[in-house]
Design a protein around this nucleic acid. Structure first.
Lengths: 217, 217
DNA sequence: ACGATCTCTGGACAGTCGTCAAGACAATCC
DNA sequence: GGATTGTCTTGACGACTGTCCAGAGATCGT
């Protein structure tokens, strides 16, 4: 019934729908997919990939477990859809950080504060991200989507770095991949320690970000 | 039968053994635990935590699945034991990198080469490490052991950094946590791209490591 | 109002999972 | 020698998994 490789969040996966179908129906179909993916993302962020079952996802939604196979071909398509949906919220979240700053120090401080803020407010989602990124190393089906999110995060970091380098009046002294890897390591380590109950994790992340930016120009 | 919190790799978990028991028996018991843990580590590194079952582990060993519960109380104890056993090989592997160098540039190059070498030769084990570290964010049982490995890796990185700073004659300009986070991010990103088939991953890791060290002093 | 289509439920299925226990085999001790 | 203990296999159990399906409700066009 569904095109085997059409799973984009903005396109329905059924190809046998006639064109005369009302747009409202299609929208409703897509909206329900998003709704179920939300429930799935919540469950995944609570339990992790290894412990999340379709029945558990359905229990976190308003529906029964059978409906998942009405809107998604199988578990892989559901998770893939979730990953893509996660990307949207993910990029937005990061992009609102440190939008405008007139001075290098202020930008670095704002960026550090922003990282620390999203780390604490969306800790479970970040935890899920690192879980899914690890899973993508085993499940090849996830790899492409995960890589796409990774590169969009890399571009986000690069915008911060170039903005910073513009303020200090010197070009960046590293590649964007290098900058992203360093910030990602910093963030992941902070998340690890934060979720383990460390009090210093947030402050260290702020200080780390402020300290890292000058080293990249 | 077993002390609920005694699972160290060098100590048997049975406390009701009388002291008159022959050392040979105890050693044999421990050796078999190591042997089974090896099979488990191999399976884990191939399939990942989420897809590894006890039966699959047993099939990668010379025994049947029932024996696992003779040597380990349950799955958690087996995995925990595996994590601790992994640590041993892990630290050794890293510590053999860049042992001696008389000049900063040579040290940085040797370290970069060492990282790239272990990334390619032990790619599956590194993949497993990042998987297990993610799992520890969900399974609290693994958290302590994972944190211990993490901090031992941090010390290893710090030895490299201080050695480098000694050669250039200036103290490090960052904390050891910062240095580890940055290198770990670099390494993880390189592993991701290497396992995805990227040709540049290894060269970028070597260049990244050479470029990162000078930024830390 | 009625038939057609979309949506959703709940149960069933074939596997697989971790766990356990009864018993076979082997080594050891008196 | 027999008896005891350590080691390992085999098969079973209940629970859980992803998947599918028959059919009930809901919604829609006409």
């Amino acid at each position: 019934m569904a095109d085997p490789e059409d799973e984009g969040p903005t396109v329905t996966s059924t190809t046998d729908r006639t064109d005369r179908i009302s747009r409202r129906q299609v929208d409703k179909f897509e909206e329900r997919r998003r709704q179920l993916a939300d429930a799935a993302l919540q469950t995944l962020s609570e339990l992790g990939y290894a412990r999340t079952s379709l029945r558990e996802i359905a229990q976190n939604s308003d529906f029964s477990h059978g409906v998942l196979h009405y809107y998604f071909r199988d578990k892989v398509e559901l998770i893939t859809y979730c990953v893509r949906q996660y990307k949207a919220t993910c990029v937005l979240r990061y992009d609102s950080i440190a939008a405008t700053a007139a001075e290098p120090g202020a930008l670095a401080a704002a960026f550090g504060d922003g990282l620390a803020a999203t780390l604490v407010s969306d800790a479970l989602m970040h935890r899920l991200w690192y879980d899914l990124r690890s899973q993508s190393l085993f499940e090849e089906s996830f790899r492409a989507d995960v890589a796409e999110i990774d590169s969009s995060l890399e571009r986000m970091i690069w915008r911060i770095v170039t903005a910073y380098s513009g303020l200090v009046g010197a070009p960046p002294s590293c590649t964007s991949a290098f900058a992203y890897a360093a910030f990602d390591g910093l963030f992941q380590q902070a998340l690890l320690r934060h979720l383990s109950g460390s009090e210093d994790a947030l402050d260290d992340l702020r200080a780390g970000a402020r300290s890292l930016l000058p080293r990249l120009v």
